[in-house]
Nucleic acid binder design. Sequence first.
DNA 1: TTGAAAGCGCTAACAA
DNA 2: TTGTTAGCGCTTTCAA
Lengths: 341, 341
Amino acid sequence: MAATIKDVAKKAGVAPSTVSRVIADSSRISLNTKKRVRKAMKELGYHPNINARNLAVRSSQAIGVIMPSSADKALQNPFFPEVLRGIGAFAHELEYSLYVSTGENDETTFEEVQRMVNGHRVDGLILLYSRNNDPVQQFLMEENFPFVIVGKPSKDESEITYVDNNNFKASQELAKHLIDMGHQHLGFIGGSLELTVTQERLNGFRSAIRENNLPLSDDYIVHTEFLKSGGTEAVEKLFALDHPPTGLVVSDDLMTLGVIHAIKEIGLQCPEDVSLTSFNNLYLSEITHPPLTTVDINIYQLGFQSARCLIEQTKNKEEPAKRIIVPYEIKYRSSTKPLYS
Amino acid sequence: MAATIKDVAKKAGVAPSTVSRVIADSSRISLNTKKRVRKAMKELGYHPNINARNLAVRSSQAIGVIMPSSADKALQNPFFPEVLRGIGAFAHELEYSLYVSTGENDETTFEEVQRMVNGHRVDGLILLYSRNNDPVQQFLMEENFPFVIVGKPSKDESEITYVDNNNFKASQELAKHLIDMGHQHLGFIGGSLELTVTQERLNGFRSAIRENNLPLSDDYIVHTEFLKSGGTEAVEKLFALDHPPTGLVVSDDLMTLGVIHAIKEIGLQCPEDVSLTSFNNLYLSEITHPPLTTVDINIYQLGFQSARCLIEQTKNKEEPAKRIIVPYEIKYRSSTKPLYS
DNA sequence: TTGAAAGCGCTAACAA
DNA sequence: TTGTTAGCGCTTTCAA
């Protein structure tokens, strides 16, 4: 068995509590004994047992990350490793560890959340999605358990800490960009309307259309399952219209990839026939053909800031709910062009 | 504070140890008291404190997942969420939790591993990469800490449990497929040669060339950083050759995406001018244009099996090292075509 | 079939 | 500045 605090104490000729204080780098221990104790720790290859520590202080120095349930291919979105990287970066600085849930469906996800919360495995949770009537969110509210949302809460907005982009404005700006280039018929392809992120982006899109006095018809708006043949259906529907769109706002780069494929299938080209804009600025959006005009939502920051908020919150239960809006930046690339040129 | 085992005991009118036995569903407790105790647990909303339990039994019911360090964009590969999903599926069945490392560089990753191992945060680790002279692997060997590798160990192969595909054979088969379609000049684009997966795929490629008595020149083999402008350099190099390749084996779908883009830039088409084959069968490989001929390595299984092996191993320290080869399947799609047709 | 009690390794009053 | 001691919540002998 590994060395314990007692072994170290004995070796250094001090009391266990002194060793404990050295670990915490307490200012009330003389430099001299600190040195002696540290030496003993080195020699014994001592490392504190985190479980024992957690038990004593009733915390866990760990945060949980809840992904959307992964039944469909949604998890194959590089968005997730990237937020995780941001979360991990901050967590690591403060020596926090990361738990992740990877539930197959809503039920198993909920079980994992319960396990984390009730078993005191984590001090707080980050939800990587936000949707209407989420049982997880409700559970956490009821338990009064610290959590932050990446995205915008569907309700209780003022009581929940969340980190988001201004998706409304970004989407508006994309649509505006297309309109400025002469496009009159714009379409929107998004994921599930249950997700608040879809709602925000759609609303922004609509608002741009309205402000520019263009006709606004629901025929130009499709919500597609991430999986469904990569947007083929969505594209078929849009381009069967009397006046097919010449510009599209798509809710996610990966989806856009499918859209590019689909429009080629029906004999059209991007950007010659259709201008495409989307969200996330995934690495792959630079290396597609054509490279995508897309909103860089700064996924890494989204993760980093959410970890920051959460850890602040777990350290101080009285910390007020806050909202952090991470700035976005539109990357103009060659998937868009003026309507006539 | 949440209810403890003592509260339950008092409420049910039994001793704490009895409650503990009920939790473990011990066969030596009468059905009657079990019922009484369970009722008390329900009423109090009792959940065992995992930290206390871990401390007592000296384990943690958690496994750690080590990603490659994430300085570059490699982590944006959907491969990772997908293995994680497989790992999580098995882990969840046995009520294990998942820790992940997301180190920025080798150093922070190593720190995270140390924290997990020395602090007893996890019972075992899964490494999601395998490369030459990996300090993490060496550390785990020295500590005699349970771990399994997804991929093939670069050394001590017979002493380490690992889960892999037959990458050699798969790669060979891809090359063979191209050769059968009349391609005489084949190129290989892979990631770092430090990774064993690259080595295996390259060797398989070479062997196919050799067996078919085609010329084998290192000029046709490029190793590119994942990041470097998405394979542009690799493509430029290959197509500056006297006899540019008409068929390519690329080590990863995401890379292939970059390659498709790059060859278009220099005025070529896939598959008309160049046939492309690659690995992983990521979701995106179905929705690119053209859809990719690629090896489905069954990422989910890779994860699932590795979790299985690891948990077996942690439960029984004497479990011998084993090797599991997950079958692959080549998906033939339209990124390949006969040389003349 | 159940209970009493010791102990897992650490922290944090309280004393000195 | 340091030591003593009593837990944190659970499991697990040993006894009954």
